[in-house]
Amino acid sequence: MKNSMLLTACASVAMFATVAIGEVGPNDVVFTDSGAVEGSLTGVAGDPANGAMVFKNRKKGNCLACHQNSDMADQLFHGEVGPSLDGAGSRWEEAELRGLLTNAKNTFDGTMMPGFYVDTGFTRVLEKFEGRTNLTAQEVEDVLAYIQTLTE
């Protein structure tokens, strides 16, 4: 009896995992005309703490390469290629932020900001990044949750 209960618990964990993995693939993301993405890419709430890590990490989002962010004043180098993200969480709706993190080119025509959840349409991608997205769907949701904390 005890055993069978354990078995049931395991099965439901496994089912839950399948649902979580069933995230929106990079080519199935639906953008509005203005480049926003309405629903979560994963169905799992974003984790702002992990989002902050992805934001800083040079091998992940490396958002600091191009953006200043007063919330990370402890970090030595902030780029100046894009606008400061101070208050970005107040300026943009959640769906707009999700869209511009997923593929900023749908929001800003011809922008230099990379698409972080795009895996096709590139030229001469270095082999180890071929067919891969810059961030995972959950990392996009995490960065999004972090940006939403940057309010004015």
Binding site: L64, A65, C66, H78, E80, P114, F122, T123, L126
Partner: peptide, 25 residues
Amino acid sequence: YTRVGQLDMACSNCHEDNYGVMIRA
């Protein structure tokens, strides 16, 4: 002027459009 790589940038993005500014360090 051709954008390449996963970051999808051209030489011009950095060296013509943005010279004079910091890109991280």
